[in-house]
Design a binder for these strands. Structure first.
Lengths: 130, 130
DNA sequence: CGGCATCCAGTTGGATACTG
DNA sequence: CAGTATCCAACTGGATGCCG
């Protein structure tokens, strides 16, 4: 996407949202932010993450970690011992991403009730017959 | 984060990420942020949005607008004229959401190259035979 | 003009079984 | 322990056609 020959439109839309697309595709998925949050405090082993993040499957934890590693957001360190020991830690880049998300987290927390209320009101209007 | 409920590693994960889940599910999809960005400046008609957002289908524009409306992020105003005229505008809540996303947008813009580099390096390591 | 209904392809993610 | 491989269900989103 760095060749960016898209540039068409005389207008906005391309400016902001397209640039966040990559980040949103990563952070917007089901587990990434959860992993990033845990790793922001300390390093974690695979099995510890698996136990801590309730509901995640081995497969999804692996995939999530791989993608975050690929984007340079965390490091994967394999200790050649028996049994194997693999530790995951956020990179500096990963930490700054976590910081950059905090406003959105705060917004979510602060407006959760208002959103829930809006949804209820909308649904009440939409399906009065049900 | 001024809330500061900094608990130890027992059951974090529920604290932060779960609260953003709703917002991420909305904003993290393919078109919502694009719509929010356009509406942040002015009101738009349906057909204008359809023309402006290149690649979006009628179906997805409708669905995106409906969900944002349901969450109280935008208003839908139908003008009873012929031909029909429907206008969409951000609510104050919608504007604050757009503001809350800006740090993430800035982060994306500022670190795009680093991420792209990390990906290239990772891929080069992973598939040297291809 | 501003939708909605239907159909369909691609992707996401869960369950399970197996491995170095 | 830390994965990989396979299969499969659910959801997302695009294309098309119809309608008030």
């Amino acid at each position: 996407m760095e060749d960016g020959t898209r540039m068409s439109a005389s207008h906005i839309g391309e400016t902001t949202a397209c640039e966040v697309r990559d980040v949103l595709d990563r952070v917007g998925d089901k587990w990434s932010l959860l992993v990033i949050e845990l790793l922001d405090h300390e390093t974690w082993r695979f099995s510890a993450l698996l136990r801590e993040i309730e509901g995640i499957s081995q497969r999804m934890l692996t995939r999530t970690l791989r993608q975050l590693e690929r984007d340079g957001l965390l490091t994967r360190t394999v200790h050649p011992v028996v049994p194997p020991r693999v530790e995951y830690a956020l990179t500096p880049l990963g930490h700054t991403l976590f910081d950059a998300i905090q406003p959105l987290v705060a917004w979510s927390r602060g407006n959760r009730d208002e959103i829930a209320g809006a949804r209820d009101a909308y649904d009440a209007r939409a399906e009065p017959a049900l």
